[in-house]
Every structure is written in structure tokens, then in C-alpha cells.
Design a protein around this nucleic acid. Structure first.
Lengths: 120, 120
DNA sequence: CTTGAAGTGCAACCATCGGTTGCATCTCAA
DNA sequence: TTGAGATGCAACCGATGGTTGCACTTCAAG
């Protein structure tokens, strides 16, 4: 159930460099492959490839301006990605808590059996 | 700031197959490479490699039993991973909302300039 | 004890991906 | 026109997710 997710969106956000790029684009309010690469430990070409990926899944949106190509974050799509992250998180959270409750129940059952009828 | 995260943990959870494996291990309460591969669209060897990755980052924990190697989820570590997911999510959420507020402020400022003092 | 099936582990191989370097192309400004 | 700034394209490299093939342990049945 919880795994039936838009895997393209997730894997786009799954790369650490792409997350940092999104961070930069958000805090700077947009940028180009060159400006991003100046603030990242990778080359412009690597950044360009990542921007291509982010563009394909709709997380960013490009505007040609002269000899520049300015990229900006698509807020709605990023909100979707955030929703998916938290969705997976809450699903696992729920399962972990359910497991915890079951474990406690078993504990109680074991305690009863240990103190109560002890005939082999 | 939001990118200074335990990248090993994140990338371990970043793979869709590994997420499904964690799902299965949680719902079944553990399993082996063979039993998991029977319920996944990949071979046992691929599952074994993934289990190795999950084991290295401490997300699962193995118990040899005869000719089997039973894997179980380390709940505490998975809780940490969940925390990281939601942390990134809330960070982006906060930024998106901040951007929204700034946009509104600019809108108001533009409106004032358009209606009010018009001297260049 | 032997035999065979079940479960694993190891190694080679392939495709994809993140990253690099090198070069060609386009565009703005002097 | 000429050059610097920004981009695009292509070849290459290493890591990784995936596969197949084979050897090794272990349990159980004969």
C-alpha cells in the first residue's frame, strides 16, 4: 500500500545534490545552471543534468532569458513531493507503533502464562 | 541547513525496492532473502545485496538460524530515518509558506505603489 | 551414511546514473 | 567584429541495481 507512490517524484528528490539544488533555488528564488554550480561541489554539466531530471518530473520550471536559462521551483509539485515524504513517514510510524502495541500485548500474555498455569 | 543529513540513511531508504522490503519486513515481522524475493519482482541475489545495504546502515538486523538468515527491522533506526524524512518535508514546507507570505507582501507593496505615490 | 533439496554466498557481467572533461554553439556587449 | 559569458552535446569513468551461473552449507529423508 504505502509503496504505490509516484516513484519518479521520489527518486528525483532522493538524490542529495538535487535536494541541495532545490534548497538553493528556494532560498535564492531561482537560478541558472552556472549560478547553482558555483555554490555546489559539482560541475555545471552535472547541475544541468540534474536540472533536466527535475524539469522532467515538473519540480522546476525553466524560463529562457537571452543567453541564460533561469530555473524556478514549481511550488505545487514540490508540495506534492513533500506530501509523499511525510506519507511514507507516517505509514512507517503507524506500523512501528502497531508493532509496539503487539509486543506489549505479547509481553502481558507471557507474564500471565509464567505466573499462572505452569503445568508442562 | 536542511541538507546536512545522514545521507547514508536517506539513500538507503531512497531506493524503491528497499522501501518495499522494509514494508514487507514490517508487515510480516521479519523474513529471509528467499521469502522476500518471492514477494518482489527481483531475484534473491538482488534482495540479498539490498539486505546487505540495509544491514550496513543498521536499518535491519540479521539472525542466523540453521541454514536460514532471518532479517528483522531495527525499529529505532527506522524511526530515525522517518524523522529525517519528515524533517526535510517540514523544512521545505516552511520555505514554501515563507515564499508565499513574501509574495503576498510584494503584491501589497505593488498595489500601494500603483495606487499611491506615483512620482518617479 | 548418502543423497538431494533448500538456503546462502561469491563472481562475472550488463545497464543506468552521477560525475567529469573537452569542444562546439549561441548571445550580449565593447 | 570580436571576445567573454552561458549553454548544449558527446565521450568517458566509477558506483550501483540487476541479472545469471556455480559452489557451498545444512537439514531431512531414504
Amino acid at each position: 500500500m504505502s509503496a504505490a507512490i509516484d516513484d519518479d517524484l521520489w527518486s528525483a528528490v532522493g538524490d542529495p545534490t538535487r535536494r541541495r539544488m532545490l534548497d538553493l533555488l528556494l532560498s535564492d528564488g531561482g537560478g541558472t545552471a552556472t549560478t547553482l554550480s558555483e555554490r555546489l561541489p559539482v560541475t555545471r554539466q552535472a547541475v544541468a543534468k540534474h536540472l533536466g531530471v527535475l524539469d522532467r518530473v515538473g519540480l522546476v520550471h525553466v524560463t529562457p532569458a537571452g543567453r541564460e536559462r533561469r530555473y524556478e521551483v514549481d511550488e505545487a509539485q514540490l508540495a506534492r513531493a513533500v506530501a509523499q515524504l511525510t506519507a511514507v513517514g507516517t505509514t512507517w510510524d503507524a506500523r512501528l507503533q502497531r508493532i509496539k502495541r503487539i509486543a506489549e500485548r505479547i509481553q502481558r500474555g507471557t507474564a500471565e502464562r509464567e505466573t499462572g498455569s505452569d503445568q508442562s
